[in-house]
């Protein structure tokens, strides 16, 4: 116990007592005036920051959800647009085909009609010709009868008539 009586390792009871008194005074002095407001303020700030972080997280999740919805909507719109375009193409194709078919049909009709008309015209021409021939023949016959021609003349006349007929034909 000699070592704590003097020198470096001396434990002075007076100093010990003063240390205890000083420290108690320090704690009591700073407890209400300094530490309490500081700790309260820091706690309040920590609480606020925690709340802010929570809110930010919530807002982020909300934004992500909205973004997902938006993306889905965009995708749907794109699909719809593609569908509309393909349907339009299909319809256009159909209309084109219909038009071509109609044109073909009407072209055929026109040629048919033209052929028929030509046929009719030809028939008419033939009937006309026949009538002409008949009238010509009657004319010739009447002329022959009128003139009483000789056989050579008659022959000449028939030939002439035949020639006429040939040219008409």
């Amino acid at each position: 116990m000699q070592v704590i009586q003097e020198g470096l390792l001396k434990v002075d009871p007076g100093l010990l007592l003063w240390t205890i008194i000083t420290f108690i005074v320090l704690v009591l002095l700073l407890w209400k005036t300094a530490w309490k407001p500081i700790v309260e303020a820091l706690d309040a700030r920590a609480e606020k920051i925690r709340g802010d972080i929570d809110n930010a997280e919530k807002a982020r999740q909300e934004a992500e959800k909205l973004f997902g919805q938006h993306k889905e909507m965009m995708d749907r719109a794109k699909d719809e647009a593609a569908q509309i375009i393909s349907k339009g193409k299909e319809e256009a194709e159909k209309v084109k085909n219909e038009i071509i078919e109609k044109a073909n049909v009407s072209g055929k009709e026109i040629t048919e009609r033209a052929k028929k008309e030509i046929e009719i015209a030809k028939e008419k021409a033939l009937t006309d010709l026949k009538n002409e021939i008949v009238s010509l023949s009657t004319d010739i016959a009447s002329k022959i009868v009128k003139k009483n021609l000789n056989s050579s003349d008659q022959k000449g006349l028939v030939e002439e008539a035949l020639k006429n007929m040939r040219t008409v034909q």
Binding site: Q5, D12, G14, L15, L17, W18
Partner: peptide
């Protein structure tokens, strides 16, 4: 056991 002392300010 401890050295004699007083409350003088050191």
């Amino acid at each position: 056991g401890l050295p004699n002392s007083d409350l003088r300010i050191t």
